[in-house]
């Protein structure tokens, strides 16, 4: 090995050209190695276009911007799924604040709500994303740590147990919104906490912050069979998501802001789920919260003040 210390022949022409040659070879080799290491990127099929890259924040979009974005989303969905979707940017209605009430006496743990939700909201089927988790709870305890997440009974309900479906609690004081570094998630006037899927950077801080484990991340490209796609879509609701962003229950805004019930409620075979406008004294939810002696906000001590209430018949 030549001495590292400066010596006269280092500056001679022969040594210089040899060094330049070595340097050139090293640089070429380095670049080849870099190119080789980057080669997986060739498989990136969903390259961000300039238009998508520069898309504005939801709250800063003009109606004109929004209609362009909706058109682009519709085209993308049509290209990918072969179905022309009906995408809308539904706004919260005046004088409406949504509340959900769930009757724990009635729920039988059939998980129909879980699957109705997946179908309605275009969740990825592979890997599977679900917004609702049903816990099989031993009689008498509200401690979620005692719950069984993966019960697989032939018949429900199993005697000695009750069932507690948990989804986004649409908190008045949502920890997930507070922690988001880019305001990609916020609470709307009607109480629904939404996500701008095109603004989320995928840091998953909200997922760590949620005390109800209500948020889900797209760990890879979501897959939905073409024939299962629900074409009735909302920008802040069930339009298909992209890899690397968060999603969660949004009280089916593509339905509820259009005067319909959430899918989980409609499918419930025992009528355990009630949904409505708490600002309307004649609504079912107003009646329940007025008349029931006990109702529960899950983990009340968190100070999140959920808009999701659990109640009992007897």
């Amino acid at each position: 090995m030549s001495s590292p210390f400066s010596s006269p022949d280092k500056t001679s022409d022969a040594a210089m050209s040899r060094r330049n040659f070595l340097r050139g070879t090293a640089a070429l080799g380095g670049l080849t190695a870099l190119a080789a290491s980057l080669s997986p990127l060739l498989e990136l099929d969903d390259l961000t276009s300039t238009e998508k890259f520069l898309q504005k924040y939801y709250k800063e979009m003009t109606p004109d911007d929004m209609s362009k974005v909706i058109k682009r989303i519709s085209n993308e969905v049509e290209r990918q799924y072969g179905v022309r979707p009906h995408v809308r940017d539904l706004k919260p209605m005046d004088g409406v604040e949504f509340v959900y009430c769930l009757n724990l006496t009635r729920c039988i743990g059939c998980r129909k709500c879980v699957h109705a939700c997946v179908n309605e909201n275009n969740q990825s089927r592979n890997p599977e994303i679900q917004y609702i988790r049903v816990l099989k709870m031993p009689h008498g305890s509200m401690d979620v740590e005692k719950g069984n997440h993966t019960y697989d009974d032939k018949h429900v309900p199993d005697p000695g147990y009750f069932y507690m479906p948990i989804q986004c609690q649409q908190c008045h004081n949502p920890p997930c919104v507070k922690v988001c570094p880019v305001n990609a998630t916020w609470q709307e006037k009607d109480g629904i906490t939404v996500i701008d899927y095109d603004w989320c950077i995928g840091c998953r801080y909200c997922e760590a912050a949620c005390p109800y484990w209500a948020r889900r991340f797209n760990w890879t490209k979501p897959q939905i069979p073409k024939e299962r796609l629900n074409p009735n879509m909302a920008y802040l609701g069930n339009r298909p998501r992209k890899q690397g962003v968060m999603e969660k229950c949004h009280f089916c805004i593509q339905r509820t802001r259009d005067g319909r019930y959430p899918a989980c409620l409609e499918v419930c075979p025992v009528g355990a789920r009630k949904f409505g406008n708490i600002l309307d004294p004649n609504s079912e939810v107003s009646y329940i919260l007025r008349e029931k002696r006990v109702f529960i906000q899950l983990k009340e001590e968190m100070g999140t003040n959920p808009r999701f209430f659990y109640y009992f018949d007897k």
């Binding site: 990609a184 603004w199 989320c200 950077i201 995928g202 840091c203 797209n218 992209k242 890899q243 690397g244």
Partner: peptide
């Protein structure tokens, strides 16, 4: 980050 392309947000 899930979406490093959106770092500018």
């Amino acid at each position: 980050l899930g979406r490093p392309d959106r770092f500018w947000h």
